[in-house]
């Protein structure tokens, strides 16, 4: 009896596995067409001299690593290097991306934690405050870029007006146009838009911490600040880590906000924006794809880090 039952179970399991493959097929085919194939083609373009004109007629030819790095010896024996890896514009974009990502994620994590701590306390109107902070997150990036572009306008912007009326500045600042403030402007808008998301992720983490831990600390007469650093922060660390890596991935590929808020500014151009310029404005599919491939490699590294550090539950076995 027991024998036949396991036999039946096994055939059931086989039937389920067969069904599973059928169920996965449409998704897999779709992802192969819209993700895997275009990615491989883009990487492929980075090894050719393709341009907007030659991309379709097959006249582009294989150039190996020339788009990345090429050694040229001139007739007079002088050695010249060219390619993305020795392009100062590229390294400027890398530096901007890294700078933007590090500062924005650090600010968003800190402010997000503060907002989460406020929202974790019980007070009247907490629901309303939570609703209010969802607004920046709900606004499309294009809209927030335009909205803030208007508020930060050099002549008629309300930010300059406010700062001048309280005496913080003497003359209006061209926030988005000046090289020294452009990055600050981008950071302000990104922090404004994304802190709510961080706060909500951290609030979810905070609410998992059992209340009796705080009560025990209170009975022992431990100072709240000490409790925060000794109890809350260590317990919240996994949630913070996942949120930070996730945001970093998003920050590294930023495009919309910078493209719209500070167009053509060298002080803010990121890897995505530079690659887009190369592809769409200059029609250089070789170098543009080389740049996007390098960005892809960097982000893949971070994804692997996220999966490893975040201990993402892939097997479904509850930890």
């Amino acid at each position: 009896m027991a024998q036949s039952f396991t036999g039946r179970e096994r055939s059931l399991q086989q039937q389920r596995v067969r069904a599973a493959y059928t169920f996965l097929a449409p998704m897999l085919i779709m992802l192969a067409v819209v993700a895997a194939w275009p990615l491989l083609r883009s990487i492929g373009f980075s090894f050719t001299d393709a341009t907007a004109d030659t991309i379709f007629n097959g006249e582009s030819k294989w150039v190996g690593f020339e788009n990345y790095l090429e050694r040229r010896v001139r007739s007079n024996g002088e050695v010249r290097w060219r390619g993305v890896l020795v392009d100062p514009d590229w390294w400027n974009a890398v530096w901007n991306t890294v700078r933007f990502s590090a500062v924005s994620v650090a600010l968003e994590a800190t402010l997000g934690l503060l907002v989460a701590l406020v929202l974790n306390a019980e007070f009247k109107g907490r629901g309303l405050v939570r609703a209010a902070i969802l607004i920046p997150w709900a606004i499309p990036t294009v809209v927030s870029a335009r909205m803030w572009g208007w508020m930060l306008n050099d002549q008629f912007g309300v930010i300059n007006h406010m700062m001048m009326s309280v005496g913080l500045i003497d003359a209006p600042i061209a926030w988005t146009a000046q090289a020294d403030t452009a990055m600050l402007a981008v950071l302000i808008v990104d922090v404004w838009k994304t802190t709510p998301f961080m706060a909500l992720l951290m609030l979810a983490g905070l609410q998992m911490i059992p209340r009796d831990m705080y009560e025990a600390a209170k009975i022992d007469g431990i100072h709240p600040i000490r409790v925060f650093f000794k109890v809350t922060l260590p317990l919240l660390k996994p949630a913070i880590l996942v949120a930070v890596i996730f945001r970093a991935l998003d920050a590294l590929r930023i495009f919309d906000l910078i493209y719209l808020l500070t167009p053509q500014s060298d002080a803010t151009v990121t890897m995505s924006v530079l690659s887009y310029r190369e592809l769409q404005q200059f029609g250089d599919y070789g170098e543009g794809s080389a740049m996007s491939t390098l960005l892809f490699l960097i982000i893949t590294g971070f994804v692997l880090l996220y999966i490893k550090l975040g201990r993402v539950d892939l097997t479904g076995s509850k930890s």
Binding site: L39, S42, F45, Y276, I299
Partner: peptide, 10 residues
């Protein structure tokens, strides 16, 4: 988590 730009030309 793909950067969209990485698949743009393809």
């Amino acid at each position: 988590m793909f950067p969209q730009i990485a698949v743009l030309s393809g």
